[in-house]
Design a protein around this nucleic acid. Structure first.
Lengths: 206, 206, 206, 206
DNA sequence: CATGAATGAGAATTCATTCAT
DNA sequence: AATGAATGAATTCTCATTCAT
């Protein structure tokens, strides 16, 4: 097989990196970007401060890679939906469902996800990442563009439309996460999907 | 008269508080939450660091009150629309227009506004949080509730609907602010309004 | 008078800078360049760590300016001799005497002086200062050149000659400083001067 | 035979020690005392960090023994000259020549040599110091003493004289090493020798 | 009241040293 | 014996906060 020959070292290396990124995720989720110190991340991961620097050049790299790793996971789940051939409306529904389900499973990631949008996160003004956020919007925009070409969606700026959908649905997820007893996921999936597709206007004439 | 007897001291006091909050706004807008130091805020306000502590207990209070003050301004503009009697659809359009116009005039506030949603900003884990954001959502929710009662909007959770609208429109504003040459405000007002009211679905049968 | 109008702030500022440089001098003299920490320097100066950064950008600047300040003092004493019109041989004697006397009074400076020559001092490879050391050598070289022109010294590379004299005499000073009971200064002045002028060779034919 | 029975282990041991000291020498020469880390020394020697500790108690011991080893090499070359029966003046000339030649061949050692004099190198205040330097001075002093006894050198403190000669010549070597195109070695040998023997004074009456 | 010099807790980062494999 | 991952003490530097003037 073409599988690269992974030595035991590589496995351990990857395991540590993974562990550290997960710890970072949890700490940022708990305390927020700025209050997540190397010490606390180290404690959370059960290693010493110095160890982190064996796997990441500095705090910035750790945070950035954690961002990327986490968003990549979300993206791969969403991409799985995007790539599946499906009528447009169903695709929207599935996307919303996937996103809600993802954050249902990864509550702690959400806070990280939020701080991704405004680039102020990593304290030094260093142009960290929200390119991933952009990419994600563009991917959705492409799907929307195709739906417009197919005559299923009225023609508007697909990029703006994508952002509207993403943020609108994010708002609902944020709300769910803050609720003690959120409604069933299916319910919110239906709500968001219907808002996106048909808006709020009551159509008695239907 | 019912006017509270405002001594000269009170006036000065209020003036200082105002000045400081405006300076804070500008610095956060420029540098981001985490990089906004007391020194820079003091410089921006033209006072010394120590003076800030005469009017605010600590950095957290300064930031929090600045948040509140800024959002209050936005709210009052939006409330002016909300309170004016108007058909529902027009009201939505006006709200979106007011919001887009506000951020067009107060570009610098936007960054602050963003960091308001997740309380991660203030570095110490002190739950600075965002009651104002909630209030704003609730006010919109009330309008939506009424529209449902009037049969103009199909019945859904008004709170969720409000959040969806707020964040969806925020996304468009954020996009506008990052663009070198954004389209005319009216264009985006129309886009957002139509999305909220009618969704994306093409209705050739209309 | 043309004295610049020194405000009280300037005086305090200069006093602090002076105090800090003196403390730095003492600590480096005691512990050596590399072991002189900001904390210890602060303690020695009777201020807190943070205070140092009010007057010096970073450790490198503190050390560099301390170097310059200290060497400047030595230079000014030597220059006083160099500028005084005097027969060449006497001038050499006076220079050696001034140098020995200076280090007799400022024993602690010596260690700093030594670490100036090899630029490795300031740990980061930053090309710190030994320009002062060069300047000093050149000044002596100029005097030697003149003595050669006057026919009092045989013609050799004046730069090399200067270095030879400086380091040779430094060796004697270093020895003096390590001795519990060094001989009278005059004695070593005489020794060094005679070595420079006449070498070691016994001249019975004189 | 009286040869100590050297087991294979002893040979390996000595080889390792030698290799490590050479690596240390190169790294210090390249980066300077303070910037020479155990990791870089290990890399240079082609072993792992841990290995160093099998042969040296700690960094200080490694550096100290490296000092000693390096100076010993220089000393043995100088001793070869010192032990050869030779008129005094020629011996001085040969010593200077040997020293200049040695540093010409071992440029990298020079930096180490310099930091030997002041024990500031080893960052922790541990008095690593420089007994070897003393020994070398004493050996020269003995030769000088003998020359005085023989009436070839005027009677002065032989120890001081030795230090003067050593440092004076070192200054010239340091200068040579910093020059892009230094003069021929013979030229500087002649300069230094003549300075030591006859001083700077022009003796037209000769 | 206002100031801004001084403070010191706390953050990131480095590196000599240890120890399980 | 050799390794090198892990450690954590030590270091530099920042910045919110205090307080004497």
């Amino acid at each position: 097989m073409a599988t690269p020959p992974r030595s035991k070292e590589d496995v351990v290396q990857e395991f540590r990196v993974q562990t550290l990124m997960e710890a970072t995720l949890r700490v940022i989720a708990r305390k927020g970007m700025a209050a997540a110190t190397m010490q606390e991340i180290a404690d959370e991961a059960g290693v010493s401060k110095g160890t982190i620097y064996l796997y990441f050049r500095d705090r910035d790299e750790l945070v950035e890679r954690t961002f990327e790793g986490a968003i990549a996971q979300l993206m791969s789940e969403l991409d799985a939906v995007l790539d599946r051939p499906m009528p447009f409306e169903e695709k929207i529904r599935e996307l919303i469902a996937a996103k809600i389900a993802f954050f249902g499973k990864n509550r702690e990631f959400f806070r990280l996800y939020l701080s991704m949008r405004s680039p102020e996160g990593t304290q030094r003004p260093k142009q960290t990442c929200h390119p991933q956020y952009r990419v994600r919007a563009q991917r959705l925009a492409a799907v929307l563009q195709k739906a417009m070409d197919d005559g299923e969606v009225r023609p508007v700026d697909p990029n703006r439309l994508a952002l509207f959908i993403i943020e609108g649905s994010t708002a609902i997820i944020l709300e769910r996460l803050s609720e003690k007893h959120p409604p069933a996921e299916a319910e919110d999936v239906e709500l968001v999907t219907s808002l996106i597709l048909g808006g709020v206007r009551k159509r008695s004439d239907r």
